[in-house]
Every structure is written in C-alpha cells, then in structure tokens.
C-alpha cells in the first residue's frame, strides 16, 4: 500500500520505469523511498530512473508459500543489487527458481509485473526477453 512518499516509485513501475531516489548533495542513490539521504543526512533529494540492471546478491527458495503464492512454491525470495548500488527485495522470473539455475552475481534486468492493485519490479536474466511478464492477480498482498 503506497504512501505519499513512495507513490512516485509505484507510479514509475506502472509506467515501466524503475524510479528511485538520489541525493542532490552527495549524489549517492538509495532505496527504499524516503525524503532523506541515508548516506549524508541531506533532505535535498530527487527521483531518477535507474537503469534496471542488477545482479543477484542473495536469496532463499521458499517452500512454505505466503497466502496467494501457493501456485508458485517453491519460489525464490531474492535481494538484488542495482547497478546504481542500492539493493531491493524482488522475485526472480524467466529462470527456474532452483539452486542450480540461480547463481549469485548473475546479471539481471528489471521487468514489471502487475500484482493486484500495484505494478511491481521483478528481475530476470539480463539479455533475455524484456517483455512484461504475465499479470498475476493472485500475488496481491495489499
């Protein structure tokens, strides 16, 4: 459920852009959305569109699905590192969610999935199809 401070992120996702924030004073990007730079404490921050490039930082493969995710299990809950530096939790699509297929540091690129009311960023192998994945109403948690 977006709040006023996070709405631009979700609006970006709906428009097919990964919009995050950057400090106008120290120039460092950060995530999750908030009106203060966690690196230097400046309140002089602005939104920009990230490249969508990322690498796989770590993950688990969850065998006990959350409500709405029964059809997906076992599924990866991953943390990716954006090319710009910040990390975010995400799903990994376009590749089997198995230990063999999910190699840490593999290059990924953002895609966008409609889940319930919101469009969310998910990540798939870089260089593969960048088409938006099928919509998944069942994944809604809002």
């Amino acid at each position: 459920m977006p709040t006023p401070e996070t709405r631009p992120f979700f609006d970006g996702c709906a428009a097919g852009e990964l919009r995050i924030q950057r400090c106008a004073d120290c120039a460092r990007p950060y995530f999750y959305p908030r009106p203060v730079c966690p690196h230097c404490g400046s309140f002089n921050v602005a939104w920009f569109t990230a490249s969508g490039d990322a690498t796989l930082y770590s993950y688990v493969i969850n065998h006990r699905p959350a409500p709405g995710f029964e059809a997906e299990a076992p599924y990866a809950i991953a943390v990716v590192q954006l090319a710009e530096g910040p990390r975010m939790m995400t799903s990994i699509v376009g590749v089997p969610n198995t230990p063999e297929a999910l190699e840490l540091d593999m290059p990924l690129h953002v895609r966008f999935e409609r889940r319930g009311e919101l469009t969310l960023p998910v990540f798939g192998p870089a260089g593969a199809s960048r088409e938006t994945s099928a919509s998944r109403e069942s994944g809604a948690t809002a």
Partner: peptide, 30 residues
Amino acid sequence: PSSPAGQFEAPYGTLGPTTTFTIPVLRYMK
C-alpha cells in the same frame, strides 16, 4: 501493508522469519 517492509518485501511472498532472516546466508556461503 503501508510500512516499508509491507510495501517493499511482503509483496514478494515473504512469510515471517523463515523467509527473510534466512536470506543473507547464501551470500555469506559464497
């Protein structure tokens, strides 16, 4: 659902500590 974790983690199918506290270890192992 309007907390940062509710917005930026829960939508990816987290379900309590078994799905979150555990995530760092593969990085450590590598």
